[in-house]
Design a binder for these strands. Structure first.
Lengths: 192, 192
DNA sequence: TATCGATGAGTCATGCATGTCTCACTTGAG
DNA sequence: CTCAAGTGAGACATGCATGACTCATCGATA
């Protein structure tokens, strides 16, 4: 039987472990490897067999976060229709992994010296491109740079994710709160 | 000579140490006590004499952050004039301690189980009150809760502080970027 | 000048997370 | 049934940050 066959024999479910780790680390970024293992329902030995060290685990979570983020970018069809609509679709699609992104966002400062994953650069590019497109077709104001709008979206996702887990805002309002604030701001206007 | 007199004889400058620690920990949240001491220009022994343990240091930084934040709230004269103007004044006043606030904001999750400083509650109250005032006098939209607007301000301050240290936005644009996005959003309108 | 208090440098013990290892047990394939 | 692979539990050594301690030095006061 092939190695691939053996892979499916293992009770170790890499995807499940990664998601459990993401869930826990999102809430408690300083959780120990033992806590992560317990949250995933496996032993610390097994966790260490598949992720040699905390770094490897965080790197794997980074890959997962990038993959989910890029999937959300795809699903949101950023090039389609009005930029504002694309932003709303993006926020809705990205909501499930907002917690993970927030964790990785705060963890990234630890990797500052080292080279960081090129995936974030790709995501930045597409996101910034979306806002730039909105500026060029007259939808978005140009006194706020596209770079800043992308950074602001990250910040609002983090704040929204945090506010939801703290119970300060309802989970169902997540998309609306973030997208509408980013797009329309706090000031009252004709349509609101 | 009184004990107060002796205090001024010491070469230990508590305020200077706290600010140096804030500067360093804002950039590298995992800095060791030795790194903090070196950044403050004192020895690790002296640092430990005045702050028994990392907790005590973080608590002191929390007090400093709260004090600076409340000073900014005072200087911004939140009750005066239009709510939008008050928000702009607040962002401008709070800019110098945005980095410290971001650090404390991310550090707070470590204290989740324990009782947290009542100062943050007071600040939350005043901030939420400002947004509520704006909603009640018709300046701000009411479909975004005042609580969320306050949380969003925290998130934007963190994102802005991070973006500035990363060199993605100019320090001089900090106030404008944050205040205008929070107030007006990304969508273009008559006055922009 | 003599003294008291504070600092700096260094050392030591402790606690904790981490990574590796061994051994017994379970499970599925042959 | 037998065997191989993977897992769980535990033990073990390691590295590192931390906190407490000692001792020599410096500075200001009396």
């Amino acid at each position: 039987m092939s190695l691939i066959g053996y892979y499916w024999l293992m009770s170790f479910d890499r995807d499940h472990v990664l998601h459990a780790a993401a869930d826990l680390l999102t809430r408690k970024a300083t959780a120990t490897m033992e806590e992560v293992a317990r949250a995933a329902g496996i032993s610390r030995a097994t966790l260490n067999r598949h992720f040699t060290g905390r770094d490897a685990l965080v790197r794997a979570l980074e890959e997962l976060g990038i993959a989910k983020c890029e999937a959300a970018l795809e699903a949101a069809r950023l090039e389609e229709g009005a930029a504002a609509g694309a932003v709303r679709r993006l926020v809705r699609e990205i909501q499930p992994c907002a917690g993970l992104l927030t964790f990785l966002y705060s963890e990234n400062q630890l990797f500052e010296g080292e080279k960081q994953n090129a995936g974030w650069f790709r995501i930045d590019e597409r996101l910034t491109g979306l806002f730039r497109r909105g500026q060029e077709n007259g939808e978005f104001r140009i006194d706020l740079s596209a770079t800043w709008l992308a950074e602001a979206l990250y910040g609002l996702l983090a704040a929204g994710s945090w506010a939801v887990t703290e119970g300060r805002v309802a989970r169902n309002d997540f998309t609306h709160m973030i997208a509408e604030l980013l797009l329309g701001g706090a000031t009252r206007r004709d349509g609101s």
